[in-house]
Design a protein around this nucleic acid. Structure first.
Lengths: 114, 114
DNA sequence: TTATTATTTCAATAATCGTTGAAATATGGA
DNA sequence: TCCATATTTCAACGATTATTGAAATAATAA
């Protein structure tokens, strides 16, 4: 991942509501969630949400697809992987960054790919 | 690491010049660098730099100490560790985030704990 | 003391951000 | 077709951001 992409991704995550949106989508898994469901879960106005989705999408952190009248947003895990990779490679002292994750596997999803 | 601290740290890193400053300090290691040396290396005005140092310091990403007339800034690796931990625990699908770092260990430091 | 170096503080500025309300668009159903 | 649902677009707004120039502060040297 390039530095500019890292800055974009960091900026996309560096906001309360957007981080909430992203975390919710991570929990939702590859199937994603409709914009409406997210709006309801986080109590955000749909137009505000569109603004935040745009930022996340520009950063490559989420994808959208239409299904009927709904827009379904889903997390793009590759980008988060790349971001964490960038941080551990460029921003750690080579000491202990990115050691073992402490606990809480973020929610079991059972059909674990690869 | 709490969510609010994560947002603060992400915001601190989500800016070109600040990310440069932080990366430079990571390279410099625990001894740190004087504000002046950083200003020269990155070609930034000293007052602009003070502004960015403040953001990084508030986020717990750097420390300062005075030495003679100089202020010496140094990276706080713990915070970056905590941030990467937060991202891998909360923002990954439990799939493959925080796998093996690809290469470039950013500078050998030899006394590897835990 | 006065001068010099290193850095911060302050006020001003343009630019960007996050939110809102109203209107527009897209899809599906009656 | 007309209507309801789901989401986006647009224009506004106050708040925050990054940068600049000028002045202040801190430490040292002459």
């Amino acid at each position: 991942m390039e530095k500019t992409d890292a800055v974009t991704a960091l900026a996309a995550l560096a906001q309360d509501n957007r981080l909430d949106v992203y975390r919710l989508l991570v929990q939702a898994g590859p199937d994603g969630m409709t914009a409406g469901a997210i709006a309801e879960a986080l109590e955000l106005a749909p137009n505000t949400l569109t603004f935040h989705f745009d930022r996340l999408r520009m950063a490559g952190l989420v994808t959208v697809r239409r299904e009927g009248r709904s827009m379904i947003y889903a997390a793009r895990f590759e980008t988060m992987n790349a971001l964490v990779g960038f941080l551990t490679e460029n921003c750690c002292g080579g000491v202990s960054c990115a050691s073992a994750p402490s606990s809480k596997p973020a929610r079991k999803r059972s059909k674990t790919p690869a």
